[in-house]
Amino acid sequence: MNSRIPGVLFDVDGTLIDSNYFHALSWWHAFRQFDHTVPMSAIHRAVGMGGEKLVAHLLGDDRDRDQDAELKASHGAIFSTCWPSLIAFDGARDLVRACADRGLTAVLASSAKERELQVLRTALDADDAIAAATSSSDANESKPAPDILLAALKAGGLQAEDVVFVGDSVWDVYASAKLGIPTIAVTCGGTSEAELRDAGAVEVYADPRALLNALPESALGKLSA
């Protein structure tokens, strides 16, 4: 008897929830508190990495590493003031529910802290269709390392060969590629289709609604056929 279960792993920030630019602005303010001037565009392109990797990526190896934890804490505190403004992208909750209706086990592969994850889930409003979710405590290393995806697979009782990952950043694509998981990417997080395809995304859509409209013909539709 075949016990393999098809599933879909969803990145949350920038994929299902319109939060990437709030993250970029929060990081910008955090850097300024420590007299670092980092272009907003550079910050945005690094969003999707874990905080410690984002700081290292943007400030370099010669930074004062003693500031790293304070920078992350400052970003978190500033970002929390944006929580009331967080909303789901058009079609996001319908996409998650449609995947579940097609027999796919839907797992949120989030690296957010637990309290923040609850805020994101409230904004998404699709808990009835979500089988499991991860938070930052479930991964030792952040994207582009694949740890959070491994945790999401475990949480959903899934195997890498039976899932598709939906994300919005090149870091998402790089992480999933390390596990041999195909990525469907969306550009609503602010990364271009060309960059996402160059990173290895198998399909690219404008947003969750566009993916939902193409669901039967997409890699997700084929997985659930």
Score class of each variant (00 low, 15 high):
S142L: 02
Q159F: 03
R97S: 14
E161I: 04
D64M: 05
V8T: 12
M1E: 05
L86E: 05
G14V: 06
I130P: 08
L104T: 15
I181E: 01
P84W: 03
D172M: 02
I181C: 06
I5N: 00
P182G: 05
H44Q: 13
L104F: 12
A185I: 15
P144G: 00
E141I: 14
S135N: 14
I17A: 01
C99T: 13
G60A: 03
G91D: 00
G200P: 14
G157I: 12
S110A: 01
A56E: 13
S224A: 15
A133H: 14
A133L: 00
Q33T: 07
L220Q: 07
H29V: 08
G76S: 06
E70T: 13
Q33Y: 05
V170E: 10
S142Q: 02
A69G: 13
V204Y: 07
F165A: 03
L211D: 09
T187Q: 08
F34W: 09
D172L: 01
L59I: 13
G157W: 02
L104M: 09
T122S: 08
C82F: 14
V204P: 15
I17D: 00
D11Q: 05
L150S: 12
R97Y: 00
A201Y: 00
V186E: 02
S224Q: 05
A123Q: 06
T187K: 08
D138Q: 06
I78R: 15
T37N: 04
G189V: 08
A132L: 04
G200Q: 06
A132S: 08
L117E: 04
V38P: 15
S137K: 10
V55C: 06
A46W: 10
D207I: 04
D66E: 10
H36F: 05
V12Y: 01
L71F: 01
V107F: 06
I5P: 00
R4D: 12
L16G: 03
A109R: 08
I78A: 07
V119H: 11
G189F: 12
V173Q: 09
W27T: 01
G180T: 14
H44C: 07
F10P: 15
L158E: 04
G156R: 07
L153W: 04
S192Y: 07
E114T: 14
A73S: 14
Q159I: 00
D101G: 14
I78W: 12
V96F: 01
S224M: 04
G221I: 07
Y205Q: 00
G51W: 04
H57T: 15
A155S: 13
G157R: 09
A88L: 03
L108P: 12
R32V: 07
L220P: 01
V12A: 05
A131F: 11
D64S: 07
F22L: 03
A225Q: 09
V202H: 02
S176N: 08
A77L: 07
D125T: 12
F79H: 11
N213W: 05
G76L: 01
G48D: 06
A46R: 11
A100T: 14
Q159R: 10
A175Q: 12
E203P: 13
Q33L: 09
G7Q: 04
G190S: 09
A201G: 06
V202A: 10
L54G: 06
A145R: 13
L58T: 12
E203M: 09
D172E: 09
T122I: 02
E52K: 14
F22S: 10
R102L: 12
K113I: 00
V173S: 12
